[in-house]
Design a protein around this nucleic acid. Structure first.
Length: 274
DNA sequence: ACACCATGTTGAG
DNA sequence: TCAACCTGGTGTT
């Protein structure tokens, strides 16, 4: 489930639940992180931060826990005492309140390491602007896009260009703007980029709020169009993502799919003409 | 039981 | 361009 909106939501949820406690229980049943967990155990979570799909848990002078969920990572928050020590060896990191009234288990991340402030800065430096961050400068992304002959579909997924956009937002934002995914960056106009960026800001904020990706405009919902209700099997309502060979909600043409840089791309050939 | 797939990224060739 | 890594849900023997 992890695109940028998920990570920002996690940053907020970790902070809300754990920063009020002056001492946390920090454990890891996995050898990979056990030493770092032991180092942090009994200390306070001071702050949390997200940049794109990267999550940072700040433990003051001890450094930051850098988490990247990859494709499979997940965090499970519980408002009850853990049934026992995190014996499932799939738990990479468990934070728990002092009396164990509540806890959070992290499973399956590609990254979970303790890093220094300087190392964290280096990560920010290699990431593009994040539509969910106040310090984001969309012009930096525009300059990179317009200087590149790579397709806009690939550029939107490049975290050095824009941070936080994944396969769903990529497909959906291109549909919403009627842009062919194979359009080279050099052919994307300033006005088009401004519209895409603003849309990403709105869509991703909504994603944080609802905890799902929902991109269908109110006037295009099945109710509004007088069609039978539909249910996408991945949470929210979308136009093209994972709808290969199904009819486009707007024009009825078949949604297409193709491989692009080892990811599945989806688009409507009629609504997003070359 | 097993195969396959997924909202991601890195490093080797 | 490809394999590797991490987990879990769904569908197939």
């Amino acid at each position: 489930m992890p695109e940028g909106h998920t990570i920002h939501r996690l940053a907020h949820e970790y902070a809300t639940r754990f920063t009020p406690h002056p001492r946390l229980s920090v454990t890891s049943p996995q050898a990979k992180f056990a030493d770092s967990a032991a180092l942090l155990d009994g200390h306070r979570l001071a702050t949390t931060e997200a940049h794109g799909k990267h999550l940072f848990l700040g433990f003051g002078p001890l450094g930051w826990v850098h988490i990247h969920l990859g494709l499979f990572g997940k965090v499970n928050f519980e408002d009850s005492p853990p049934a026992g020590p995190a014996k499932t060896d799939t738990v990479r990191l468990r934070l728990a309140t002092p009396a164990a009234e509540a806890y959070a288990d992290l499973r399956g991340p590609t990254t979970c390491t303790l890093i220094t402030d300087a190392e964290k800065q280096a990560i920010h430096a290699r990431l593009g602007p994040d539509p969910l961050r106040d310090d984001a400068d969309p012009d930096r992304a525009r300059a990179r896009i317009q200087a590149s002959r790579t397709t806009i579909a690939a550029l939107l997924m490049d975290q050095k260009v824009v941070a936080g956009v994944g396969n769903v937002y990529r497909a959906e934002v291109l549909f919403r703007h009627g842009i062919d995914p194979y359009t080279p960056g050099t052919a994307v106009t300033g006005a088009q980029w401004a519209a895409i960026w603003q849309d990403l800001v709105d869509l991703m904020r909504e994603g944080v709020r609802l905890n799902r990706i929902d991109t269908v405009r109110p006037e295009h919902t099945p109710e509004a169009m007088g069609r039978p209700p539909r249910k996408d099997d991945h949470g929210g309502e979308v136009y093209v993502y994972r709808r290969a060979a199904m009819p486009c909600h707007l024009c009825g043409d078949e949604i297409r799919t193709a491989d692009l840089a080892a990811r599945n791309l989806f688009w409507c050939p009629t609504c997003q003409p070359a």
